[in-house]
Design a protein around this nucleic acid. Structure first.
Length: 648
RNA sequence: GCUGGCGUAGCUCAGUCCGGUAGAGCAGCUGAUUUGUAAUCAGCCGGUCGGGGGUUCGAAUCCCUUCGCCAGCUCCA
């Protein structure tokens, strides 16, 4: 019999008969590895453990520890879901069922939407199928026969998939799970060897989706679930979801009185007093950061004549997302959805010299985007919002240093907020405007800036905007979720559309390049992130109420008022709780409002000019002189100290 | 925008399946209590059951429609 050579990841190699499978190789290495094995990578291609090796190859066994392990495992769980659904709902048609970052889903066409009881029944059936340890058998079927097979089974979507995905091939790969009803799916795999491997999974919810994600296509019912290698991991994940629910900014924002909404202004925030304070703290912080970085702040119009939007191109491409209004004499106007066109007008309003560049316009005025009703959600998707927006007008040569400065700015701001983040460079998309050479120069400049500043990043090929490449930043919050906030986008188109020029050192006219950039992204979304990151328990420098003074009895009111005055005079945001309640009650309320410091004032304190300090996180801190507390609090504000692990 | 779910007092929710004229806790108000580190006691007030239309002797409950919210789809700061 022919022998082949397989090379293992540790560099060792062994001779085995042709036709040997990765599963057998794993068993030959150790029983433990065989038990852990889920699939294999043969010359970097993922295959089943039962895949017969016909030629020399590099073989790596995929286990739960492999990067692809969880993905394969979840994909197999999705198949189990489909097997259970076809078993319980005869006539159900299957769409696609991939693994995702968080779990998996599978789309079906069924007579009626799934209800929670259905999910329970389906999950129960999945457990039965898992308990039976049914093999996942892979077969190569003749392409035409496979199409006929699926067609005969009433699975036209699978036929369509085969048509689209395997054009020109004679055989297609299918997987079978043999229960009483045999479930067959068209799928490249790989899969776990048998359903008994699937231990910890659960279905989460059902909702609607469309075939290929296109609303013009047939509606389908999607079931979401997630799976982990162990029950412990699954429980931890479910706990994270619970935790996320507890921190939901919509709930916390209501509980601590930051903002509200009204049906008559869908997607537009009513910032309450505390929310406004928090908002202003962020807005002022950003001004304080940007001013020394060479930015000037503008306030430009909210409503423009259609001519502006035609010039910028938004009228042609973005009108559906804009609020349109008519002027007194019937002229068509658009409420601004972004600041850039206005900033172009400001740039063009004067003669500009190369000596003026970089010219940096910052603006925080509100923007309106007429978002589809179905996408609105809390503060993260709204119709009215403000950005910490700015446009930097630069020369070609200034791109790299300017971007470098921006990277430092992002680093500094996120550092102040104690946020972890990652950067992503998006390059020229398939459809783009301008010259390839310009794009290449721009991308090179961005890469250079990233390298110089030591910023680690990933590359997303072809994901740039049509007008220029960009760098996006993802923040990871306290419970591991990602939020896209900051962005740095190069734009060659807008200056051209507005025919912007500056006079160069050569006394000739040149076209500036514009860098669109935001660090918070939008105040609304960033505040949502802050709320969920800190679970509403803000660090002192952000807290809308920093200190509450709690008199023990009415006779301490005068003293307490005096304390509050001194706190206010020192610039601290302080309130007085003068209700006739017991101290325990007032403390409980202050804790629930997540106020960082509670100052108790009773007989002892009023007689010796102290306050009894209680911190939200550390409890009773004993008594201190008022000035002493103020000094410590002010320095905590200055240091922007983050509280110890935010508790929900 | 599309699909599904939900909408009852300021908040959290019961009542909806099976139609008989709305209920609890918290909050608020009033009174008593003057209180030492996460809920003092008592009383009271509070709802065109999201809006509109229909079926019915009778609708929170059934039907239609509309608005909003939620989960997704698509889109995005």
């Amino acid at each position: 019999m022919d022998e082949i050579t397989v090379t293992l990841p540790d560099g060792s190699s062994r001779r085995v008969p042709a036709g040997t499978t990765p599963g057998e190789i794993a068993a030959g290495i150790s029983p433990r590895l065989a038990k852990a094995a889920l699939a294999a990578a043969v010359d970097d291609r993922l295959v089943d453990l039962g895949f017969p090796l016909r030629q020399d190859a590099r073989v790596r066994i995929v286990t739960p520890d492999s990067p692809e392990g969880l993905h394969v495992y979840r994909h197999s769980t999705a198949h189990l879901l489909a097997a259970a659904v076809t078993n319980l709902f005869p006539g159900a048609q299957c769409g696609i069922g991939p693994a995702t970052d968080e779990g998996f889903f599978y789309d079906f066409i069924v007579d009626r939407p799934f209800v929670p009881e259905d999910l329970e029944a389906i999950e129960k059936k999945m457990r039965e199928l898992a308990a039976q340890d049914l093999p996942y058998e892979r077969q190569m079927l003749d392409r035409e026969e496979a199409k006929q097979f699926f067609s005969g089974r009433g699975e036209p979507l699978k036929v369509q998939l085969i048509d689209e995905k395997t054009e020109g091939r004679s055989e297609v790969s299918c997987y079978t799970i043999k229960d009483r009803d045999t479930f067959v799916d068209f799928c490249v795999g790989p899969h776990v060897p048998s359903s008994g491997r699937l231990k910890a999974f659960t279905l989460l919810n059902a909702s609607n989706a469309y075939w290929k994600g296109d609303a013009r296509n047939q509606p389908m019912q999607r079931i979401y679930g997630t799976a982990f290698f162990s029950d412990k991991e699954l429980q931890a994940h479910l706990q994270r979801l619970e935790e996320a629910k507890k921190r939901d900014h919509r709930k916390v924002g209501k509980d601590v009185g930051l903002f509200t909404f009204h049906p008559w202004a869908p997607g537009a925030t009513f910032w309450l007093d505390k929310g406004t304070t928090l908002y202003n703290t962020l807005a002022d912080y950003m001004r304080a950061v940007l001013f020394p970085a060479g930015y000037v702040e503008l306030k430009t119009p909210l409503i423009y004549n259609k001519a502006l939007w035609e010039t910028s191109g938004h009228w042609q491409h973005y009108r559906d997302n804009m609020f349109l209004v008519s002027g007194r004499d019937g002229e068509e106007m658009g409420v601004k959805a972004m600041n850039c066109p206005g900033h172009m007008l400001v740039f063009g309003s004067e003669m500009r010299s190369y000596k003026d560049l970089p010219l940096r316009f910052h603006e925080q005025t509100p923007l309106h985007r007429n978002e589809a009703s179905g996408v609105l959600s809390g503060l993260t998707r709204v119709r009215q919002f403000s950005q910490d927006d700015a446009h930097c007008f630069v020369t070609d040569e200034q791109i790299a240093p300017e971007v470098e400065a921006l990277l430092r700015l992002v680093q500094r701001v996120y550092g102040d907020f104690g946020l972890e983040y990652s950067a992503k460079l998006s390059t020229r998309p398939a459809e783009f405007l301008g010259e390839i050479a310009t794009w290449d120069r721009a991308e090179a400049a961005l890469k250079q800036a990233l390298a110089t500043s030591g910023q680690k990043y990933t590359i997303d090929e072809g994901d740039g905007a049509f007008y220029g490449p960009k760098i996006d930043f993802d923040i990871t919050d306290a419970i591991g979720r990602k939020w896209q906030c900051a962005t740095i986008q190069l734009d060659y188109q807008m200056p051209q559309r507005f025919d912007l020029k500056y006079v160069g050192a050569d006394n000739a006219e040149h076209r500036p390049v514009v860098i669109h950039r935001a660090i918070f992204g939008s105040f609304e979304r960033f505040i949502a992130l802050m709320i969920e990151h800190y679970a509403g328990a803000f660090p002192l420098w952000l807290a809308p109420v920093q200190v509450v003074v709690l008199p023990i009895a009415d006779r301490h009111l005068d003293y307490a008022r005096n304390v509050v005055q001194r706190l206010h005079a020192a610039g601290l945001k302080a309130e007085l709780d003068e209700r006739q309640e017991k101290i325990g009650y007032k403390i409980r309320e202050a804790q629930l409002q997540k106020i960082p410091y509670m100052l108790v004032a009773g007989d002892r304190e009023s007689s010796d000019g102290t306050v009894s300090v209680r911190s939200r996180t550390g409890g009773d801190q004993g008594s201190r002189m008022i000035e002493e507390f103020i000094t410590a609090a002010l320095s905590e504000v200055r240091e922007k100290k983050a509280p110890p692990a935010a508790a929900a």
